Simulated assay, not measured.
Amino acid sequence: MPAAQPRLIAPSQTCDSHIHIYDPTKPVAPTATGPGPAWANVAAYISAVQCPLGLNRAVVVQPTTYGFDNSCTVEAIAALGLDKTRGVAIVGPDVSDAELQRLTDAGIRGARFQMLPGGPLPWDALEPVASIIAGFGWCIQLQLDGRLLAEREALLKRLPCRLIIDHVGKFLEPVPVEHSGFRTILHLIDGGRTWLKLAGAYETSKAGAPLYPDVGALAKAAIAAAPERMIWASNWPHVSVQDPPDDAALLDLLLDWAPDEAVRQRILVENPAELYGFSPSSWPPPWRTRLR
């Protein structure tokens, strides 16, 4: 069956800011919850998502499956093309400057913290890692139950690098826009160095497809507050659910969430270009700290 076509025509240089690539030849980390789908390789992503949706750029996010072995992610960046692909790795507080430089040269632009089952790093590693990666211009990519964000707000405001909050906050139970966790997202965005990823609505929505209105209400409020701090992603290959969503429909969500074409241009092209360094003028971030 041919892949579905989206109604939204993706502008040139649209970036899918969160995908995972798997390789069954790589060892599974002891902290992982499972091996991941063996079929979810670069060729499958190109044929299932990138070409049908008309996407140009991608960010490969290290699966927790492989823990600190970032080789699958680095190889995927190279296969997709370093000129149009970036990555997010998992590194610990003991990572060396030499390794960070190697990963930077390979296209890595962030460090992942997955604070749900399978993540290999605890909360007390967040500040040390953030301090180390800041000198390389990397961001922290954080995924957690958004209902806990308020209690972490002070910590997140202290980070010396940029911050990406995954999946519209990933509130494991629906919350209104008045919820303290969502207000924390808005507070962090107001600080100028936090981005929100518009992805994964299907993972937490209780209202369901096609518009996921419970999650959509949060997305719309965040977009209205700070369109310059929003990025979009497919979250392919949707390993957290047994019935995966249609990727074209996930792109089309922006027709509802961000009906203004200029705002969609920012979300799909300009914001990720700045955040991940696709544009020469945006890399390295001018505020980055000195290397250790």
Rank of each mutant, 00 (worst) to 15 (best):
A4D: 14
A4G: 06
P6M: 07
R7L: 14
A10K: 04
A10G: 04
A10F: 01
Q13K: 13
C15D: 06
H18T: 03
H20R: 06
V28W: 03
V28M: 06
T31Q: 11
A32V: 02
A32N: 06
A32Q: 06
G34W: 01
P35T: 04
A38G: 14
A40K: 10
N41E: 11
I46T: 15
I46Q: 15
I46C: 11
A48H: 15
N56C: 10
A58W: 00
Q62G: 07
Q62A: 11
Q62H: 11
F68D: 07
D69H: 12
E75H: 10
E75F: 00
I77G: 06
L80C: 10
L80R: 10
G81N: 06
K84T: 12
T85D: 03
T85V: 02
R86L: 04
G87E: 04
G87R: 07
I90W: 09
P93V: 02
V95Q: 11
D97W: 00
D97E: 14
D97I: 00
E99D: 14
R102M: 08
L103E: 03
D105G: 07
A106D: 07
G107K: 10
I108L: 10
M115E: 01
P117F: 01
G119Y: 03
P120G: 04
L121G: 03
E127L: 15
P128N: 10
V129L: 05
V129T: 03
S131Q: 15
A134D: 13
C139Q: 13
C139S: 12
A150N: 12
E153V: 09
L156F: 09
K157V: 01
L159W: 09
L163C: 07
L163N: 08
I165H: 12
V168W: 09
L172N: 13
V175I: 14
P176N: 13
V177M: 02
T184Y: 09
L186F: 01
G191V: 06
R193Q: 15
W195D: 08
K197N: 12
Y202E: 08
E203R: 15
T204K: 15
T204N: 14
K206H: 14
P210S: 14
Y212P: 08
D214A: 08
G216A: 13
A217D: 12
A217C: 07
A219P: 02
K220I: 10
A222S: 11
I231A: 07
A233T: 02
A233S: 14
A233F: 03
S234A: 09
S240C: 08
P244E: 05
D247R: 12
A248P: 03
A249M: 12
L250V: 00
A262K: 14
R264S: 01
E270G: 00
E270P: 00
E274R: 15
E274T: 06
Y276M: 06
Y276L: 05
G277R: 05
S282D: 09
S282N: 06
W283G: 03
P284M: 04
W287F: 10
T289N: 12
